[in-house]
Nucleic acid binder design. Structure first.
Lengths: 207, 207
DNA sequence: CAAAATTAGTTAACAGTGTTAAGTTTTGCA
DNA sequence: TGCAAAACTTAACACTGTTAACTAATTTTG
């Protein structure tokens, strides 16, 4: 069935083109810059054709959110080399902050905007796999720190929530412009890193 | 000038009516339920009349954000009675979490949505007074803790950022539904409180 | 008191949004 | 070649915030 194969390939290609157009709009004009009509214009099809390849706009935004998680994974590719789990945890936190500030739009989609979660909730198998994987990495490192007695014994889940909460909180307060009027522009990023340092030091049993 | 007084009073009244209508829509249908046309319909004026009393929709949302801060202040009315600043800090954190979960829509407007900040940025005197005041309370308590040597000496600004970041992070991850698929529904709120406890204990010099 | 000027409010429109139902064109196969 | 299925488009719905231009009411002035 060579003809069916070719048709299948064309379908996959157009789906990818739609996604590429979405990425282009998203990267250049942010979340609000993505609209079904603009996507359709780029791929040179009518707006309704997009709906033959994606259920709705949320599905497209979900795919963009997935791309964001892949970018974040790349950010953390080098941390596995760090032997000391406490240092590795620290670096993971630093990377998280850096990612959020370098890709605020992707960060928004991954952790702030409702769209991707709305899509997940309408799926049959509604799991947030990307979030699950990211949290697993954090928990594993924390467990290792505890096993090696580098941090005080405690509930890993609770500690993971606290640490993730802290870095997420600082990133989201920054990208949603809540620090702008409170801190000096130039002090925001250093302060965030200092806050992370403070937490790491406070946790460290050797200090 | 009794006639001018009456006119002024009428203007103030209609402005208040518009705000009341906005609060009603916001409380009953959330952020997306507030629209200029719906507000106009409630106050029984044409949509464009609203623009004679508020510069734009962002100004209305800014006012709702201010109402949110007043609600939050009420939440913290009783904490001044707590003598021990470390306990007061703990209670402040607990209240923050509780407020965010009880009034997720107001919390959204106060700390997550861009609208109020966009309004502030277009003002001549662009200060985020409400945010400033809230941060001041946190810093003051932290300073008192440090003065009484209940916590390790350090930079108050940095610690405030870390603590605010953590509680804000946990609330925003909750209301933006990032914990839903990761934790058991019933465990979210207890876990958040445990995380706060963990931080407080880790900070406490006596433990 | 009547005319002019100011204030208050409305109508109509612009330029966009996501999404759906119905209709058309293209394609593949018997 | 005819027909069915797939692919795609047109037109429409029900909204959104916002502005310019117009009308109606009210106040001030001559």
């Amino acid at each position: 069935m060579g003809i069916n194969e070719r048709k299948e390939k064309q379908k996959v290609e157009l789906k990818q083109q739609i996604l590429d157009a979405s990425v282009k709009l998203f990267s250049e004009h942010g979340y609000d810059g993505v609209s079904m009509r603009k996507i359709a214009e780029i791929v040179e099809y009518s707006p309704t054709t997009v709906y033959l390849y994606f259920k709705d706009k949320n599905e497209i935004l979900f795919e963009l959110h997935e791309i964001g998680f892949k970018k974040m994974e790349e950010f953390n590719r080098d941390i596995i080399d760090i032997k000391n789990p406490l240092l590795r945890l620290h670096k993971l936190g630093e990377n998280y902050l850096r990612f959020g500030l370098e890709y605020p739009d992707y960060y928004d989609l991954m952790f702030l905007l409702p769209a991707p979660m709305e899509f997940i909730n309408k799926m049959q198998d509604c799991n947030w796999t990307s979030g699950d994987n990211a949290l697993f990495i954090l928990k594993s490192i924390l467990q290792e720190c505890m096993d090696k007695k580098l941090i005080k014994h405690g509930d890993v889940d609770v500690m993971a929530m606290a640490i993730w909460g802290m870095v997420h909180g600082m990133v989201s307060l920054t990208i949603r412009k809540r620090f702008e009027k409170l801190l000096d522009e130039s002090e925001i990023i250093p302060s965030m890193n200092k806050s992370l340092n403070w937490l790491m030091n406070t946790m460290d049993t050797s200090s």
